[in-house]
Computed example of a mutant assay.
Amino acid sequence: MNEMLVPEDMDGARLDQALELLLPGSSLRERRRAWEAGAVLVDGRARSKGFRVSVGQRLVLAARERGESSPVLGVRLLSVQGDYAALFKPGGMHSAAIAGRDNPSVERLLPELLPGRGARLLNRLDFLTSGIVLAALTPEAAARYYELEDAGRVTKEYRALVRGCLEWPVTVMNALDTDGRKKTKVLAREDESPLRWTRAEPLEYDEDHDRTLLKVVIHKGARHQIRAHLAHVLLPIVGDPLYGGGEGERLFLHHGRLSFEGFEVAVESGFPVAGGGTGRTIPQDDASKN
């Protein structure tokens, strides 16, 4: 692995140009290929090749063999069970490839992480959300997953660190309008399908910072469902730039467990209740009240 700090004469340069620091004598095309391999970080985060670097930022370039997990980007293969594969997506990366753009994404890495398996992405997480992304290894497996999801037999469990105090579990049943908007709108009426409801249970409360760690469960999900629903009940997620007024450097929302018939996978979030705060665990008998 090579790394270097951006010098003054490279301040404001595009990332694919600044890579000359790590690949001296290389052509612009060669440097773009290195970026496309998904092995370039700026201060620990994947960036597009058009990203403008600043003096003092740390550039990292790491080689990767075909089929190996991508520790530099933070993407890794969690589990292969039958015709399904679960992968970990870090916050700050796209789940799916975006048409007309070459941003790093889990979808672009599927041929390397699962070579020759014909992996197809089944779910997406928001750019800033971390956690489990699922892929099917056959068309039949993909069809079966969607059938199970439509039948409410897929359970998706998240961890969310929110502003405010939640003492008892709450189910947010409001319908959502996701059409043609950057933000999802929460409607006054109830969604007829429980698949679109959001169930939140408090796990721990930090009195010093007025933050609550939640277990959140959904079964199908819509765009920004958890983020919009929690903000609607005055529990915006810490770091949410759309619904909570956060700066967006880190969104404290993590897809930590996914289960359906014949498949289960989990990965810890590592979230603190709040940096250094004094936490109070919500007793299980309290958390189970409605």
Rank of each mutant, 00 (worst) to 15 (best):
L109W: 14
P111T: 00
E112S: 15
E112P: 11
G116I: 05
R117F: 12
A119M: 05
R120H: 09
R120S: 09
R120D: 03
L122P: 06
R124Y: 10
R124W: 09
R124V: 01
D126G: 10
G131Q: 01
I132L: 13
V133Q: 04
L134V: 07
A136L: 05
L137F: 10
L137R: 01
T138I: 11
E140P: 14
E140C: 08
A141C: 13
A142T: 05
A142W: 06
A143C: 10
R144F: 13
Y145T: 02
L148K: 03
E149Q: 14
E149N: 11
A151K: 09
R153G: 07
R153L: 11
R153H: 12
T155I: 04
E157V: 14
Y158E: 01
Y158T: 01
L161P: 00
V162Y: 04
R163T: 11
G164C: 10
C165F: 15
L166S: 04
P169I: 00
V170P: 15
V170Y: 15
V172Y: 05
V172A: 12
A175I: 07
A175N: 09
L176E: 04
T178D: 14
G180I: 00
R181N: 11
R181Y: 11
K182M: 06
K182E: 15
K183D: 12
K183A: 05
T184P: 15
K185V: 05
K185T: 06
V186C: 14
L187P: 14
A188F: 07
D191S: 15
S193C: 06
P194R: 05
W197K: 00
R199Y: 15
A200N: 06
E201L: 06
P202N: 01
L203H: 06
E204Q: 09
D206W: 10
D206T: 02
E207R: 15
H209N: 14
H209K: 06
D210M: 00
D210T: 00
T212G: 08
T212D: 08
L213G: 02
L213D: 02
L213T: 02
L214G: 02
L214M: 05
V217W: 02
I218L: 03
I218D: 01
I218R: 03
I218P: 02
